[in-house]
Lab assay of single mutants.
Amino acid sequence: EQRVMALYDFQARSPREVTMKKGDVLTLLSSINKDWWKVEAADHQGIVPAVYVRRLAH
């Protein structure tokens, strides 16, 4: 499974989004949309801005 790391803090503004802190490692579920990526963090799935995360090497 692909992982991403948060580059910045992000506060969810809707139930579809995921709140994350800089340095958090999340599971990447989908990167089809270039602006918003779907991730999973602590059993919560949602979207985060793609520019706020970076793919981690396997």
Rank of each mutant, 00 (worst) to 15 (best):
2 Q>S: 02
2 Q>Y: 14
2 Q>P: 01
2 Q>H: 12
2 Q>W: 01
3 R>Y: 14
4 V>E: 01
4 V>G: 00
5 M>P: 10
5 M>S: 09
5 M>K: 11
5 M>N: 07
5 M>C: 07
6 A>H: 07
6 A>Y: 02
6 A>W: 03
6 A>G: 03
7 L>R: 04
8 Y>R: 15
8 Y>A: 15
9 D>N: 05
10 F>V: 00
10 F>I: 09
10 F>W: 15
10 F>Y: 15
11 Q>R: 06
11 Q>N: 11
11 Q>K: 15
11 Q>H: 08
12 A>I: 08
12 A>K: 04
13 R>V: 01
13 R>F: 06
13 R>K: 08
14 S>T: 12
14 S>Q: 03
14 S>L: 01
14 S>M: 00
14 S>N: 13
14 S>R: 09
15 P>M: 00
15 P>R: 07
15 P>A: 10
15 P>K: 13
15 P>I: 08
16 R>A: 14
17 E>Q: 10
17 E>R: 03
17 E>A: 05
18 V>F: 09
19 T>I: 05
19 T>R: 03
20 M>P: 02
20 M>A: 02
21 K>Q: 12
24 D>N: 03
25 V>N: 08
25 V>T: 04
26 L>K: 09
26 L>C: 12
26 L>A: 07
26 L>F: 10
27 T>P: 09
28 L>W: 07
29 L>E: 00
29 L>K: 13
29 L>S: 11
29 L>G: 08
30 S>R: 02
30 S>D: 13
30 S>A: 05
30 S>M: 08
30 S>W: 02
31 S>F: 07
31 S>P: 12
31 S>C: 11
31 S>Y: 10
31 S>N: 10
32 I>G: 14
33 N>T: 05
33 N>A: 03
33 N>C: 00
34 K>R: 11
34 K>I: 08
35 D>L: 04
35 D>W: 03
36 W>G: 03
36 W>V: 06
36 W>M: 10
36 W>Y: 12
36 W>L: 01
37 W>C: 09
37 W>A: 01
37 W>K: 10
38 K>M: 13
38 K>D: 07
38 K>H: 12
38 K>V: 15
39 V>G: 04
39 V>E: 09
39 V>M: 02
40 E>L: 05
40 E>G: 11
40 E>M: 11
40 E>S: 11
41 A>N: 12
41 A>C: 13
42 A>R: 10
42 A>L: 14
42 A>V: 08
43 D>W: 05
43 D>S: 13
43 D>L: 01
44 H>P: 00
44 H>W: 07
45 Q>E: 13
46 G>M: 00
46 G>V: 00
47 I>S: 05
47 I>Y: 15
47 I>A: 07
48 V>F: 04
48 V>G: 00
48 V>Y: 00
49 P>G: 08
49 P>I: 09
50 A>L: 02
50 A>P: 02
50 A>T: 09
51 V>Y: 10
51 V>M: 14
51 V>H: 14
52 Y>C: 15
52 Y>N: 04
53 V>P: 06
53 V>W: 05
53 V>D: 02
53 V>I: 04
54 R>T: 12
54 R>Q: 13
56 L>V: 11
56 L>E: 06
56 L>S: 13
57 A>K: 15
57 A>V: 07
57 A>E: 15
57 A>H: 15
58 H>W: 11
58 H>C: 13
